[in-house]
Design a binder for these strands. Structure first.
Length: 627
RNA sequence: GCUGGAAUGGCGCUGUCGGUAGCGCAACUGAUUCGUAAUCAGUAGGUCGAGGGUUCAAGUCCCUUUUCCAGCUCCA
């Protein structure tokens, strides 16, 4: 048996054992749903009897029960049954019943019995006797909430996750790997390197500390340089707009629950009332309406007041307004408005995650206004930019193409032509099958290409995105004048390459483990005068570094040099210059390269030259020798 | 929003059966003036996330709540 197949059978069989154990512990009222294998083990979804909780303390009980079941060396029996028989067997199991009912009429249904008291609906294959699992190494990892069939409006279930490997060593090795991945966690490194912080008064809104902000600026500078070369022009626009704008863009109708409101002065009402039919949870269309008593003397705000403003969750509406300022000729297109403004998106609690998911962030955003005939070339250029940027960081990405959904807006012919153009570029760039296609997953306003990057734990995050938009130009009534004098509507391309700067920084912190390329390092060079009498020369070196555009920091204090070096090393500065009598006399620097290589007595000019070279070329490697 | 965890000086942690908070690093002061990752001595810093409750007594037990983490769902 191949290793993969072996793992699959093992894990899947263990999932059945888990379900059997849970039923033996918590009783026959447990509803069991599905228990697939995953990358490092398996999970099983249950609905527990009323009032039953499964906590970390219970994991051992469940594991022990599973081991006890395995030790019974029960035989596994595969049976083929008819749909009617299956429905009878699982008549008390609502999820199994639903699964069976969804199967085609003529499908052969297989069930597996473990011993004679546990039966599961399953395609198999499985082991033949529980004793085959005697050496299996497994461990309950965690429990989590999950929704039946991934739909938050359906049953809320308890998902039990477990690691599972063929033997103890493999499990141990895997847990070690997880531990090492956690060492790369950007939240941990960000704190150690003093890059950013959070405070509970601003959930999901990073404070960028001096060192982190240096890096942030370096990323912005890099983005601006590249976009300048590609004909982009940068704008900046209001961070809050009156709700009139959001009514035009459609955000008031579709996105208002994710927007931070800025009340005006007129909408405050003194309340002393009973309000009927209040839907408290706007996120949930099924939420029951309630009667709400507003205490006498309370003030409530009417969001629909005319002076209500809201912080922008996206830049698009302002870019539309900017385009609309004057009439445009076809000769001007494409027009590219890039924008790095601060965005706010209110998230449901439990959605935030370090820098990966925040409520306040900046995108390397752009809105490009094109004629339909220009879409193909423009997208090709955007993908070229994405390649240039991602390769500079040495990260790999995966492209996903999302096509027309059922509730699409606009002309189907335009959609077809646009999708064909996108597909042509993707095929050329990544090869057929070199990217994922999500049929019907596009936005209602246009097809899109998403670029996904993995974090240290292998979770994928969407960074880059390229979206065509046929809706906003329509909502804002955008036009351009064609060669024959007619007015036509431009197509808008929304695109971001980093995606959010915050998320991207999180990704690269984990990718580089905090050991950044020279051009990206918060401080690039640290200066250590050996004794206070060397401060004068150190200042001269600092001036030269700063004049060359190099981010440098120095420690002129009377601490001993070992302490100074230690502090800079903990910040992972690429170069530490040690300056004493010899260097001052010869106008040189002695360089300790991150990773502990040494370059001694380097003429200052030569050192400046190699720093400038790395900044210019955005090199991934730090130069550690002089040719 | 859902499930399960967590929160103790700036950071990392200990705190037993409920008995009135400790340690390391960092900081500060003094001495040391030093050639590549921890010199020595001393000092200061905490209403234990917030609110309420039980108790003679709460970091510890109970309730509420905020934030964070791992998942689910949603997303850049």
């Amino acid at each position: 048996m191949e290793r993969e197949e072996f793992l699959e059978v093992y894990r899947h069989s263990l999932a059945h054992i888990l379900a059997k154990a849970v039923i033996e512990i918590y009783g026959k009222d447990v509803q069991y749903a599905i228990g697939p294998q995953i990358a490092d083990g398996f999970y099983y979804d249950f609905v527990m009897p009323e009032g039953v909780q499964v906590k970390q303390d219970d994991f051992k009980t469940i594991e022990d029960k599973m081991r006890e079941i395995i030790k019974r060396r029960e035989t596994w029996t595969r049976k083929e049954v008819t749909k009617a028989e299956a429905l009878e067997i699982f008549k008390d199991q609502k999820f199994k019943t639903e699964l069976i009912n969804d199967l085609p009429e003529d499908e052969t249904i297989t069930i597996y019995l473990t011993g004679d008291d546990f039966v599961d609906l399953c395609r198999g294959p499985h082991i033949e006797n529980s004793q085959e699992l005697m050496n299996a190494a497994f461990e309950i990892r965690s429990v989590s909430g999950a929704y039946w069939r991934g739909d938050e409006h359906r049953d809320s279930m308890l998902r039990i996750y477990a690691y599972a490997f063929p033997d103890k060593n493999a499990l141990k090795a895997h847990k070690n790997m997880i531990k090492e991945a956690m060492e790369r966690d950007h939240k941990k490194i960000g704190s150690e390197l003093s890059l950013f912080m959070f405070d509970e008064t601003a959930p999901g809104m990073p404070y960028w500390l001096p060192r982190g902000w240096k890096m942030y600026q370096a990323l912005l500078k890099f983005s601006r340089e590249i976009q300048e070369k590609h004909g982009y022009t940068e704008i900046s626009a209001p961070l809050i707009n009156n709700k009139k704008l959001w009514l035009i863009s459609g955000h008031w109708a579709h996105y208002v629950n994710n927007m931070f409101m800025v009340p005006g002065v007129s909408g405050w009402l003194k309340a002393d009332a009973n309000i009927e039919e209040v839907i408290e949870n706007l996120q949930d269309p099924e939420a029951p309406a309630k009667n709400v008593k507003i205490a006498a003397g309370s003030a409530v705000y009417n969001r629909e007041a005319e002076d209500t403003m809201a912080a922008k969750p996206m830049n698009c509406p302002n870019a539309m307004m900017t385009y609309k300022r004057t009439v445009h000729s076809y000769k001007e297109l494409p027009i590219r408005y890039s924008e790095y403004d601060v965005l706010h998106r209110k998230e449901k609690s439990g959605q935030m995650n370090g820098l990966f998911r925040v409520q306040e962030f900046r995108q390397d955003d752009d809105h490009t206004f094109v004629m339909e005939s220009q879409i193909e070339d423009e997208i090709a250029d955007i993908i070229a930019i994405a390649d240039e940027i991602y390769s500079t960081f040495g990260v790999t990405y995966r492209a996903e193409f999302s096509t027309r959904p059922d509730d699409f807006m606009g002309d189907i012919e335009v959609w077809n032509r646009a999708e064909a153009a996108l597909k042509k570029i993707l095929d050329k760039k990544y090869g057929e099958g070199g990217y994922e296609i999500n049929e019907g997953d596009g936005a209602f306003y246009g097809p899109k290409i998403d670029l996904q990057i993995k974090d240290a734990l292998g979770r994928e995050w969407q960074c880059g995105t390229i979206q065509l938009d046929f809706q906003l130009p329509h909502n804002f009534g955008l036009t351009y004048q064609t060669q024959d004098g007619n007015l036509e509507m431009p197509v808008v391309i929304h695109r971001a390459i980093y995606g959010s700067l915050e998320r991207f920084i999180g990704i690269i912190i984990e990718n580089f483990k905090g050991i950044f390329p020279f051009w990206l390092s918060p401080y690039q060079v640290a200066v250590v005068p050996i004794r206070e009498e060397h401060n004068e020369y150190a200042k001269k070196v600092m001036d030269a570094l700063q004049a060359a555009g190099i981010r440098a920091e120095a420690d002129y204090s009377d601490k001993n040099m070992k302490e100074k070096i230690k502090a800079f090393k903990s910040y992972k500065d690429p170069y530490i210059l040690v300056l004493g009598d010899k260097e001052a006399a010869e106008n040189t620097v002695s360089v300790n390269v991150r990773g502990n290589k040494q370059m001694n007595n380097v003429p200052l000019d030569v050192f400046l030259g190699l720093c400038e070279k790395m900044n210019r070329e955005h090199s991934l490697e730090v130069i550690d020798h002089i040719d």
